[in-house]
Computed example of a mutant assay.
Amino acid sequence: MARLIAPIALLASAALPGALAWGAMGHEAVAYIASNFVTAATKTYFQSLLADTSADYLATVSTWADSYRYTTAGSFSAPFHYIDANDNPPTSCGVDYTRDCGAAGCVVSAIQNYTAILLDARYSAANRQIAAKMIIHFIGDIGQPLHCEALDIGGNSIAVLYDGDGTNLHAIWDSDIPESISGGASLTSAKSWATTLTTAINTGEYKSLAAGWLTGLSVATAATRQATALKWATEANAYVCSTVLKGGLTTVQNKELSGAYTTTADPVVKLQIAKQGYRLAKYLDAIVAAA
């Protein structure tokens, strides 16, 4: 079993350099989608906890965990952003909690543990605020297929080209492909994309799917929280075989991926951002109902 999270140290939240899962824009889009679906009670609860009554109250903290991990106080949290599925893509994909969530923890255990903090009134408001920021971020992370894969450090060591520039496979899934869909990397781009995906959930292509995205979602116990997060990780990981590395390593390594590859990846990225935004809303609703 992954270790429990150590007591949370408070710190200034100045942004620090480093790779951001889904890119800042992707995380902000997830958060904006969630803010479009939470109940009024959930909105009030988290606006109060996060000390932000603006419409951006979830989006503005959605990348905080990526800054925290690069501080001395927060370095322990680096493994919480992913789970290293030791599978064999593209032949076979799958996540095994015992095999893949190391002693330092992983995104599945982190979602469970930080939810426990939010639900426990014995923790200070400051610690519960940090737990909320972590959950908002990690529910985004767990939807990125390469955050649920061990091969080549989640694709970080797979060199590729994108629009002629050298980069890596993980980075294009984090940023290049989402930004090509949304049209930019700004908060405005994230908000606009979230509006489009919210419409798709309410009345468009995702309307018939949305209820199924919530199957098994529960914050009732440690076991159900872990099972919920593990289901999401397993689902994201499956795309490593079906899309990310469908043709094998040789079809992407040192190849230009801004063309046909991105066209194939676009629907998966859209779906995963929409899905995790909707799930984040309902997960936060469940926390408030339980609290």
Rank of each mutant, 00 (worst) to 15 (best):
A227H: 03
R99K: 14
A194G: 04
M1I: 12
A29Q: 03
R99P: 02
A274N: 03
D96Y: 15
T42N: 07
V268F: 06
K246S: 14
I117M: 05
G105H: 01
S192N: 09
Y283W: 08
P267M: 11
L146Q: 06
N127E: 12
F76Q: 06
T263W: 00
A29Y: 04
K133Q: 09
S189H: 02
E235C: 09
A190M: 00
R225T: 11
G248L: 06
A210Y: 02
M134G: 08
L118M: 15
G247M: 05
S35H: 10
A238M: 00
K231E: 04
D120V: 13
I273H: 07
W213N: 13
H81R: 10
A6G: 06
L245N: 10
K255N: 08
A31M: 00
L280Q: 05
L257Y: 05
S242W: 07
A104T: 13
G212D: 05
N254V: 13
A85F: 06
W173M: 09
E205L: 14
A6T: 09
A159N: 11
V240M: 08
A51Y: 07
A85Y: 05
F37P: 04
T53R: 14
S92I: 15
V160F: 14
G248P: 01
I177N: 03
Y45G: 09
L119P: 01
L50W: 11
A125G: 02
V107P: 00
D84E: 09
I153D: 06
Q276G: 07
A85P: 00
C101R: 12
W64T: 13
Y57I: 15
S35Q: 12
K255E: 11
T234S: 14
F46A: 11
M134T: 08
D176T: 04
Y32P: 01
S189F: 01
A220F: 01
K275M: 15
I153C: 11
A222N: 02
P17Y: 06
A41C: 07
C241R: 07
D100G: 10
P90F: 15
K246Y: 15
P79I: 12
S258G: 10
A227P: 00
L146M: 12
E149L: 13
I83V: 12
G247R: 06
H81T: 13
R128L: 02
I117W: 04
K275N: 05
I153N: 02
L4K: 08
A227N: 07
K275A: 15
I287Q: 02
N88S: 13
A125K: 08
S109E: 01
I172S: 08
D285T: 11
L151R: 03
L119W: 02
K43C: 14
A15P: 03
G18H: 04
A78W: 06
K133A: 08
I287T: 10
T72M: 01
L197R: 02
A223G: 02
S67M: 03
G102T: 12
D66W: 04
I139Y: 01
A220N: 05
S35M: 14
L271D: 05
R128G: 09
A19I: 03
Y123L: 08
I111N: 04
S182K: 07
I153R: 11
D163E: 06
T228W: 03
T167S: 04
G26T: 12
P145M: 11
L217R: 14
T44Y: 09
E205V: 15
G74A: 04
A85N: 00
A171M: 07
S208C: 03
Y82H: 13
T196Q: 13
T91I: 15
G74T: 13
I273S: 03
A289H: 13
N237W: 00
A116V: 00
S242N: 08
